[in-house]
Design a protein around this nucleic acid. Structure first.
Lengths: 246, 246
DNA sequence: CGACGTGTTGAACATTGTCAAGACTAGTGG
DNA sequence: CCACTAGTCTTGACAATGTTCAACACGTCG
């Protein structure tokens, strides 16, 4: 059920306030944004926007996970972005969507009507500057992913994905990323395959292999325990140190 | 020979003026930029910046082609960006480079000292807005490339690369992209392989195959004739219409 | 001429994809 | 409560695609 929520949650209580596109805004700017914003929620599996559709809004993921995917005529699909809470959806200055946006889990979005938002971009530097920062971060992530897609083996691809999800999960829970790590996979095997440029069978096989080799432990299909994060990083082929945070 | 050029070419005669990061600037802003800019030239094969090095400047490609590459410990490398005239190099707000930047052909860059440039970003909205636009375009290009890397066959990858180079070349020469098309490849087989996530042998084989099948004609190794651009797009597996320009 | 950088081609091999069967889980209706 | 179904996941056998290793061709520069 796709629902436009009437309750207008105030920006001051917003859980993504400090990381979203509005992070730099002062009180007056937030007020302007409040005037053009509304919330929408989507169920897991629902499509938020179809590629090619006219975009009526841009916005931020408040909770849940969405994916950006591209599909070829014959059905081959590639996920080109994983949108987590605080990530921005949509492109100011563009009429129609370039990718399918699909809710991977239940999802809540904070939407801004596109036209007034574009006006704000051109008038208030705080929004444009924050959006620039976020876009540069996404570009880095996309390029990182190009290395994964172009040069890593299936096993390394899986380990890379697990380390990304684990790292993000730890930062949400404000945990360190040393030693043991436990999290739930928010993706089906098929979604993992679409992200990694593999088939779901290969994903399944490599998950089994990593389990067999003690790199991960599985309870059910989705609950993952990583005994040693460093070991996982080694399997991913990433530069060794892993940028350990204190 | 890496040379800092003394002759300060004025911005008013700049060939990339209308597309570069300074495209939106008014006279006063251009004057500010002139004060912090200098030109550097690089020979084909030279490294412009090493990944991890401190960035003293950001800047624009004026002429020639540069590539952004990422390398794993064991030597596997992936090109994550192809920088053409007017493209921007560097990331404001970051101390050190994330990728190797290599001159693929002889190269001239218009460099801005980083600190003053960052100051301009935060003070003059025209630069920040243009940079946002350009970054969004690059993000789209990177995502497009993720589909190529993740889901296309070797033959489709080659055809995709050729169509991108051909399209860009046509737009430089202000030609249409219908029918016949002739251009020189600015990349070695190895560079093509690094871009496409293939080995150079596979690139060579698929080039031969496309030639044998009449999709392209080759004079020498680098001079390419495409008898039918539509045919090439079909081989690339891209959405059919190809966005034909009038 | 010989050496080097670049590119092509062949044969054997490895990794991943394809197709197919079956396991596990949760939900539905008798 | 159980059987049935649908969705997700696992596993096996085999095929296909791309890689590796090796030999050789071509052109340029000393």
């Amino acid at each position: 059920m796709n629902e436009i929520l009437n309750l207008s949650i105030g920006c001051e209580n917003c859980p993504i306030q400090h990381r979203a596109v509005c992070a730099r805004c002062d009180a007056g700017e937030l007020e302007q944004l409040e005037a053009i914003k509304y919330y929408r929620s989507f169920e897991a599996g629902q499509t938020v926007i179809w590629s090619g559709d006219r975009m009526e809004f841009v916005g931020s993921v408040v909770s849940g996970i969405a994916s950006l995917t591209q599909t070829m005529e014959d059905g081959r699909t590639q996920m080109v972005g994983l949108l987590l809470p605080s990530d921005f959806v949509g492109r100011p200055g563009r009429e129609s969507a370039s990718y399918d946006v699909v809710a991977t889990t239940d999802l809540v979005m904070c939407c801004f009507r596109r036209k007034p938002f574009e006006k704000m971009i051109s008038e208030t530097p705080h929004v444009a500057q924050r959006l620039l920062e976020m876009t540069l971060d996404e570009l880095d992530a996309a390029r990182e992913w190009m290395l994964v897609l172009g040069r890593k083996t299936a096993r390394e691809k899986i380990a890379s994905l697990l380390s990304i999800i684990g790292r993000r999960d730890a930062s949400l829970k404000l945990e360190g990323i040393s030693g043991k790590m436990v999290f739930d996979l928010p993706l089906t095997r098929e979604a993992m395959a679409d992200y990694l440029g593999l088939t779901l069978e290969t994903v399944s096989r490599q998950m089994s292999a990593l389990k067999r080799d003690g790199v991960i432990e599985l309870e059910g299909k989705r609950h993952v325990t990583v005994p040693s994060f460093q070991r996982l990083l080694d399997e991913a082929g990433d530069d060794s140190d892993g940028g350990l945070m204190a």
